[in-house]
């Protein structure tokens, strides 16, 4: 039996960029709120439990472009994309751009004020298949110009914040940026939030396809920011451990390489800390497989063992020798 046509569906989509904050010391709550004070007349949101997380007010960017699509034509769509910056423990900076594609209404662009009254909504001007837009959006190739691209909007904000004069441009370790591109379709009636796909592509791109009961774009974006943060932590830790040539090389060099990880990264792991119950199922799935926390714990254990081994004072007589 074929399921009934769900009709036009709302699609949430967005992209999160994650980078280390280029500063030698992690920022305090106060400095962090100054850094993320993107709209001077609005509040910066700060939360200190269970860890320090500072969220900027939203900015909006107007778009009038094509929707990505894998098979069909690319319908034109008009509206605004919301973007915000999030700083975790004064150390990891994320920018997150997202929008809600509302089911098509009308075929002509309306006066701009119409869209301003619906911040973060994008209205297609032609019929489209939600599935097709999702697939087109998540296809890993770079999105062509003139096509909806929240990632480039997030990237602009990331560069802007990272150039802030509060930062001394000295990161404690070398690390790359990651991009997490996501979509969310409505979950079936009464169903929990679920994850349909999590892929890790080359060049730091991850794609996530969700089904969520909540159509609150901000809450779903926050879940994706949390996923992106932990994916970045794992990616960065793996790269740094590889570089430190753990288990070979000279002890001093290995210790010097591991030290910043202990100082700046190891305490940041807190998956799902702020994810609302309605969306928590997504983390549960990811913890079962691939098992983010398992991999993290085993890496952390390796680092701790190495640090402990290599800091045993050499002057102590080596008992094992006989």
């Amino acid at each position: 039996m074929t399921p009934p046509d769900p009709g036009p569906q709302t699609v949430l989509c967005g992209e999160v960029r994650t980078s280390v904050l280029r500063t030698s010391e992690a920022l305090t709550a106060r400095t962090a709120t100054q850094l993320l004070n993107l709209r001077p007349d609005e509040h910066v949101l700060l939360s200190e439990r269970p860890n320090l997380r500072v969220v900027s007010p939203h900015q909006l960017t107007g778009v009038d472009c094509r929707l990505p699509a894998l098979t069909g034509g690319r319908p034109r769509a008009v509206g605004t994309v919301a973007v915000r910056a999030v700083l975790t423990e004064g150390r990891v900076l994320q920018t997150s751009a997202f929008a809600r594609l509302v089911p098509g209404v009308g075929s002509h662009r309306k006066p701009w004020g119409h869209y301003l009254l619906r911040p973060g909504d994008i209205e297609p001007l032609a019929r489209h298949q939600a599935r097709d837009v999702v697939e087109g959006f998540l296809a890993s190739a770079p999105l062509p110009g003139g096509v909806l691209n929240p990632g480039s909007i997030a990237e602009r904000l990331l560069d802007e914040v990272l150039r802030h004069q509060l930062l001394d441009q000295r990161a404690p370790f070398k690390s790359g940026r990651t991009r997490l591109r996501w979509t969310a379709l409505p979950a079936a009636e009464g169903a929990q939030a679920s994850i349909e796909r999590f892929t890790v592509a080359a060049d730091g791109l991850r794609t996530v396809a969700l089904r969520t009961p909540s159509a609150d774009p901000s809450a779903v974006a926050a879940l994706c920011e949390d996923l992106a943060l932990h994916d970045w932590l794992l990616t960065t830790l793996l790269a740094l451990v590889e570089r430190s040539r753990l288990g070979s090389g000279d002890g001093e060099a290995v210790l010097a390489a591991l030290r910043p990880l202990v100082d700046h990264l190891l305490h940041l792991w807190m998956p799902g800390a702020r994810v609302p119950d309605a969306l928590a199922g997504v983390w549960e799935t990811l913890e079962r497989r691939p098992g983010f926390s398992r991999q993290w714990q085993s890496l952390v254990q390796r680092i701790r063992d190495q640090v402990a081994l290599r800091t045993v004072p050499l002057s102590r007589p080596v008992m094992a020798r006989s």
Binding site: L60, T61, G62, V63, D64, C65, R76, V78, T80, V81, R109, W112, L116, G145, G146, V147, L148, N149, P150, S152, I153, R156
Partner: peptide
């Protein structure tokens, strides 16, 4: 929030 010209993807 600028009214986008047709074709602008926000970049």
């Amino acid at each position: 929030v600028e009214s986008p010209a047709e074709g602008s993807d926000g970049t």
